[in-house]
Design a protein around this nucleic acid. Structure first.
Lengths: 333, 333
DNA sequence: CTCCTCGAATAGAACGTTTTACTTCCGGCG
DNA sequence: CGCCGGAAGTAAAACGTTCTATTCGAGGAG
């Protein structure tokens, strides 16, 4: 309760508040003797700078926002770990927002971030409406897109080539001899899901199959539970020879349901996931997947964002596009 | 860049700034006609309240801090999901801190939270030094312990009985006929690891075995990789009949390494994890585990914290202790 | 000895809200 | 008709920093 302010420190050290502020923000500008006296006073009184006052006056905070689609998905957790590491190295705090795939919730989160006057926002957008993000930029908040290509040239973005990933995945399945392929996906409002589907279709075209023959099952969420439901559907409507899932969570659910129903993987059905989360390798039948540089995605995006914030004049906007890498395991032997 | 303040809104609507503030904070106090005019001005100008200014003047923010030991662990992710849900329902933002098991990093995170003058902090402490937390309370920041019993009576805490969990887990292994038991744990600076060990010893005493015969392998991190290393060690020094791991990540790593070395689970070794993360059921040999009400842990802790903040007079501190539940799967058949 | 410069520190005005005390207005009551 | 009370709105003072302009000395150059 005993809130000790910069004024108290100043009085205690026998200097003016301005000097204390200087000690805090540009220690070089103050004579060593004075600095020591002030520092002693600070630790003596247990002073902690009031971030809000600082933000208010300085016009910007040392906080960034991170908005992801599903914090329960290890993919995003690992992105978040990368973000957190860089941010904390540079003394930034991270405000976390989980959009749960709902543009509404995402909007609410962005409003909270705007109110906090965060320095910048890292976002994996769940909808395709760039206007909301532009509004943030209108408030002087930098935006870096994560796992999403740039909406506009004067913006940074870090993404992974999902079309290529979808193509590689399905090409791999086709190479195993499968000719009927199902695609189990999350909501097709999510860009990643759509692009992986386009890649899948391209792969089918590549071997002379009709892209329209790709059987698409659209789940409402991208969880293991949804995957189990999708598998039940697949079984009910006749099993394909191959199943490609938009992420590993779905794939693990599909796998579990298939095995429970006595369908053998990979003998009866070959199966691929996407993201190569840690658990893909540990599952009953280890899961083939598309690996993405997840942690790096978070790190690099944060570095770009903070560079844009701290060096606005020298900063060059970048659009980085990684290529995913196929990891073949038992589920496609 | 065009920062529009409450003043601009006031001018536009032809009222005083105070009235705009009233519209924002107690709409009841202002005449309907005026209110509408102000609301129109707000959306017309795209006004967003400056949270820092508000915090500064009001003396408290609508932000809470969440400090966890490992955001990469699905256990904590699910806690975080519960926290995020409640917080966002009540209009609070969540600042995330990952201590990575290091008290230093935790300290840094707590300092950031203190600077932000968060309303309260939810923390799974990684060290056993209550002093740092008391310092937060000294700044008027409420603290609720998550997955940890209370340090003091005037404090809320939500925990799960780890001694009982460890006892139940090892009792289950012993019931399967095992007589030599290894305990693969994370750093013994972590309370959970210690208490689960105590429970394990109690279980051994329960069947007339020497508690000292529990073979303890202390890994430096609680990850699958660390589990693999521990398994290699186990194999090198002679396999026990049962392995109890302090969490599922370790157990999955142990499982993977054992299987790769041709050790059969559960025929040669029975194995238990802890936490019952989603992936425990999906692994090669599905994993027996101790289930905890993870999401509820986050939800309830947050509800307690926000109740303490919003109703400081009627708030009653609570120490909640859940009991874990044994889930038997293939690894202990 | 004076004038300048330069480093070090200070005073005081911001920043955008919230809040308290105060004004104004209007209807009703004695 | 005068007064009172309440509703509605306003003016202005905070909150704790940062930053700009300013002062104050101490040295060095002329």
């Amino acid at each position: 309760m005993a809130m000790v302010s910069i004024k108290d420190v100043a009085a205690f050290a026998g200097v003016s508040p301005g000097t204390v502020s200087n000690v805090l923000n540009r220690p070089g500008k103050v004579a060593p003797a004075t600095r020591e006296r002030v520092e002693a006073a600070i630790s003596e009184l247990g002073f902690v700078r009031h971030g809000s006052a600082s933000t208010l006056r300085a016009g910007h905070s040392r906080t960034i926002g991170l908005s992801v689609i599903d914090i329960g998905n290890p993919f995003f957790t690992e992105v978040a770990a990368g973000v957190e590491d860089v941010a904390s190295e540079l003394g930034y705090a991270v405000i976390l927002g989980n959009s749960a795939g709902s543009p509404d919730k995402e909007d609410r989160n962005l409003r909270v971030l705007a109110e906090h006057r965060v320095r910048g926002v890292l976002i994996t957008p769940s909808g395709e409406d760039p206007a909301r993000l532009d509004r943030l930029r209108g408030h002087g908040i930098s935006v870096v897109l994560v796992d999403h290509p740039a909406h506009r040239p004067d913006q940074c973005a870090v993404a992974v080539d999902d079309v290529a990933g979808g193509r590689a995945a399905v090409a791999h399945l086709l190479a195993k001899g499968a000719r009927t392929v199902a695609y189990v996906t999350g909501p097709l409002t999510i860009r990643q899901c759509v692009e992986r589907r386009e890649g899948a279709k391209a792969a089918m075209r590549g071997v002379g199959l009709e892209p329209e023959d790709l059987r698409v099952y659209e789940a409402t969420t991208m969880t293991a539970r949804a995957g189990e439901k999708a598998a039940a559907d697949l079984i009910a409507h006749g099993l394909p020879e191959a199943v490609f899932c938009a992420n590993d969570l779905l794939a693990l659910g599909v796998l579990r349901a298939l095995l429970r129903s006595g369908v053998r993987v990979p003998e009866d059905v070959v199966l691929m996931g996407y993201d190569d989360i840690d658990f893909a390798a540990a599952s009953t039948v280890s899961l083939s997947s598309m690996r993405q540089p997840t942690y790096q995605l978070g790190r690099i995006a944060t570095e770009l964002l903070l560079d844009e914030c701290d060096n606005p004049d020298t900063h060059a906007h970048q659009h980085i596009m990684f290529q995913p890498e196929l990891v073949a395991r038992e589920s496609t032997q």
